[in-house]
């Protein structure tokens, strides 16, 4: 019984471990070497899905900390990624509070709104309060591919949820 409980805990911690690992390691979702414009923000897909489906797996404090680590590794001012992730949590929680049944289409649409708010805040802060220049074209490509890839990861995460965590929403 205890063994099953430990395994269950590991499965539950999976998405959070993946988020921390993506933030702290060299692993990135920037595929410019394969296709010049192909970059995506995998972290926000991960956060949005789990906040929407099983918020108890993705605690706000952990996401905040992961954002701080991401800022250190990427060289951004501290707090900016956390802020961006928190906006994703906010929109995700709001959608969760307002909706009873969600489909992939509704999740996709609301993710788009969450991403717009999150990126708007991220790049507004970066442009107005720091000296870092960022290409608007790259932001556009990044947002497009993040949105484009969302359904694929939605299916993968949903499969993980059904198989290892339980299909029932929290």
């Amino acid at each position: 019984m205890a063994k099953y409980s430990v395994i269950r805990k590991i499965y539950h911690a999976g998405p959070l471990i993946l988020l921390y690992y993506l933030c702290i390691s060299e692993v990135d979702t920037n595929f410019e070497k394969i296709f010049e414009i192909f970059t995506l923000n995998f972290q926000i897909i991960l956060i949005y899905f789990w906040v929407l489906k099983r918020p108890e797996i993705m605690a706000n404090g952990h996401i905040f900390l992961a954002g701080l680590i991401n800022d250190v590794v990427m060289g951004f001012p501290l707090g900016i990624s956390s802020l961006s992730y928190l906006i994703i949590i906010f929109v995700g929680t709001y959608v969760r509070n307002k909706s009873v049944n969600t489909t992939i289409a509704s999740d996709w649409f609301t993710f788009f709104i969450a991403m717009i708010f999150s990126n708007l805040l991220f790049f507004t802060f970066l442009n107005n309060f720091t000296e870092i220049s960022i290409s608007m074209t790259k932001i556009g490509y990044n947002m497009f591919f993040t949105l484009f890839m969302f359904p694929i990861f939605w299916f993968i995460f949903n499969l993980y949820r059904i198989t290892f965590i339980g299909a029932k929403d929290a």
Partner: peptide
């Protein structure tokens, strides 16, 4: 956490 992130951001910048 949003307030905390904003404070950390401005302190860092």
């Amino acid at each position: 956490l949003i307030f905390l992130a904003i404070i950390i951001f401005f302190l860092d910048v």
